[in-house]
Design a protein around this nucleic acid. Structure first.
Lengths: 249, 249
DNA sequence: TCCGCTGTAGAACAGTGTTCGTGTCTACTG
DNA sequence: CAGTAGACACGAACACTGTTCTACAGCGGA
């Protein structure tokens, strides 16, 4: 048997109970010291993204690290899209989901989101892969399940909880995407659109008078760490959720 | 004088009051019926995105529509990134900003967000450009100014208003990006990850027992139009904003 | 008239993802 | 033990992408 990458990928989306069937790797071929496996590909891919950012993650780059040609990867991976999916799968698999505690559901849901954020930011730009990936992956569904459990334990109405998970995931993704984009813009170009706070304030002050509010509240607009904004928005979304009773914290 | 594209782009970010200086186009060169202008480039780019989606927007494609070679574009546009910026600039310029009405600030802010959403969705995938673009564009700042004015008129605390604008813009972008990604996934592949609601329900039902909440609340998770979710999240973010008094609507 | 300048192109370069055909080796089979 | 089937690896190539270099056209001013 030993499935093609296509079959393997389809299995990852079939959402069945079949447990991945290690397929009893035949003998590793020939003179290679280390045979090429899906896991090895994903690991080196993570290394590249962590060191050089997501745009540097090309098939050729991965192949080069593995000391082979690009075509060799296609025996284990359907696509670059497939590789992306594997990446975010492994990333989601490392998220720790707490046992739902009705008295601490806010902290718990924020904790999961923060974990996601930190994982995404650790591999800058990888959120692009997350946006492109279909949401029917088992690993991503696992964290969705965890978040749903937390919200339900907190007494959030099921419909609101379901939609809120979507919104939260989407926001975390977008936040990290923007973050990594800004970072990327910093380190290459650097021709002056480094956006330090002082610089931003100066620019806002130089705006024409048709931007009165922006000029007046420039301080507020540029205030806070980026992570302050993250916490603020999370609070906004979580605190507004309709609950069906239960005591508040 | 007649500025290079580089200078023109820098001017767009300088945020000064200088009014773009039409630069009195010298004679259009030679045998062309229609000379290539920045505006023509942007317009054809919009056409391509509207018809074929953002991934089809390549320099060569634009040049081909203009019946010329790719290199001709670089006399008017610094980069593809620059072209992207011009696109989202024009897109933002077409957003209508209402006169702030303290009694209708919720509807007004939702209206602006919905306008943005519909513009983005009209040109599928163009949000990618929006994420990549630097936020120091005059046109994008204009809608930021408008949103800020609405929120302040509604009595929202300045700091919260400032941060909320960021969050809202980010969410609208992310929503549209996800939407267009899903749309794109539909029309190419189509090998079965069409995610109709019935199909999703079937898949959730087939999940292993380690996903109890997802299985139980599959109906809620798949409920609602995509736009219902949009409205829900907007409400979540807007209703939670701290106000400094003023009567509620 | 001539010079210079601006805008238009063609060809080419360095990348990208992906596929085809071919080799090479292991592991099972007769 | 010999032989074959099949998985694996790989080099070369294709069709793209953004971008740059170079030369060419025609109009302005001197």
């Amino acid at each position: 048997m030993s499935p093609n990458p296509q079959q393997r990928r389809a299995a990852r989306h079939r959402l069945g109970t079949d447990q991945d069937a290690p397929a009893a790797r035949r003998g590793p071929s020939g003179g290679r010291k280390k045979p090429i496996t899906v896991d090895a590909i994903v690991s080196t891919a993570f290394g590249i993204v962590e060191r050089e950012g997501y745009p540097a993650l090309t098939m050729r780059r991965v192949a080069a690290v593995l000391e082979t040609g690009p075509s060799s990867l296609y025996a284990h991976v359907v696509n670059k899209e497939d590789l992306d999916e594997l990446l975010i799968g492994r990333l989601c698999a490392e998220i720790e989901l707490p046992e739902p505690d009705p008295t601490a559901w806010r902290q718990q849901i924020a904790g999961v989101c923060t974990q996601l954020r930190d994982q995404y930011l650790r591999y800058p730009g990888i959120t692009q892969a997350s946006f492109a990936a279909a949401p029917s992956n088992l690993d991503t569904l696992r964290v969705g399940e965890g978040m749903l459990a937390i919200l339900l334990a907190g007494g959030v109405q099921p419909q609101a909880a379901a939609w809120a998970i979507d919104s939260l995931s989407l926001y975390v993704n977008a936040y990290c995407l923007e973050h990594s984009m800004a970072r990327g813009r910093l380190q290459d170009g650097g021709e002056g659109w480094v956006l330090s706070r002082a610089e931003l304030l100066r620019r806002f002050a130089a705006l024409p008078d048709s931007y009165p509010q922006t000029k007046r509240y420039a301080a507020e607009l540029t205030a806070g760490t980026v992570h302050d904004r993250f916490d603020f928005t999370l609070g906004l979304m979580v605190d507004g959720l309709p609950r069906s009773g239960a005591a508040d914290t």
